[in-house]
Amino acid sequence: KRPMNAFMVWAKDERRKILQAFPDMHNSNISKILGSRWKSMSNQEKQPYYEEQARLSKIHLEKYPNYK
Rank of each mutant, 00 (worst) to 15 (best):
R15Q: 04
L61C: 13
R2K: 15
H60P: 10
H26G: 15
A6Y: 02
P48A: 07
A54C: 05
P48V: 06
N43W: 13
R55V: 06
D24L: 05
I30H: 00
K63F: 05
Q47V: 08
M8C: 12
K12A: 11
I30K: 02
S31F: 09
E14W: 14
P48Q: 07
K63L: 08
L34V: 01
W10C: 03
Q20V: 06
M25G: 02
L56S: 07
N66G: 12
R55I: 04
K39E: 03
R2C: 09
Y64V: 14
S40T: 10
L19R: 13
M4A: 10
Y49D: 02
Q53M: 09
E52C: 02
Y64K: 15
K58M: 10
A6E: 00
M8Y: 08
P48N: 04
F22Y: 14
K17Q: 03
K46G: 00
Y50P: 02
I33N: 05
E45G: 01
S31Q: 15
F7E: 03
A21Q: 15
N29K: 15
A11D: 02
P65E: 12
Y49L: 02
S42R: 03
I33S: 02
S40N: 12
Y67A: 15
M41I: 03
E52Y: 01
E51P: 04
A11M: 04
W10H: 03
S28V: 09
H26I: 10
R2Y: 14
M25V: 04
G35A: 15
S57W: 07
N29I: 13
D13L: 02
E62S: 10
Q44F: 06
E51M: 08
L34P: 00
D24F: 06
Y64Q: 13
N43C: 08
Y49V: 01
E14P: 00
Q53E: 15
P65V: 10
Y50N: 04
R55E: 06
E14N: 06
P3F: 03
A11L: 03
I30R: 00
L19I: 12
R16N: 12
Y67S: 14
Q44P: 04
Y67W: 11
N66K: 05
V9A: 07
Q47N: 05
P23A: 04
G35N: 15
Y67N: 15
K68G: 11
K17G: 03
H26T: 14
G35H: 04
S57C: 09
K68H: 12
K46P: 01
I59M: 14
N43D: 14
K1M: 15
R15N: 00
R15V: 10
R15F: 12
K58N: 10
L56R: 07
M25S: 03
L19K: 13
K32N: 06
Q20E: 15
Y64S: 15
I30F: 03
H26V: 09
S42W: 01
I59G: 11
Y49T: 03
W10P: 05
R15W: 15
K17W: 00
R16H: 12
K63P: 09
S42K: 10
K1P: 15
Y64I: 14
E62L: 07
K46Y: 00
V9I: 15
W10G: 01
P3I: 04
I33V: 06
N43H: 09
N5F: 01
S42T: 11
S28K: 14
L19S: 10
I59N: 13
L56D: 06
K1S: 13
E51K: 08
R37S: 05
L61W: 08
W38V: 00
E62V: 06
E62C: 05
Y49C: 03
D13I: 04
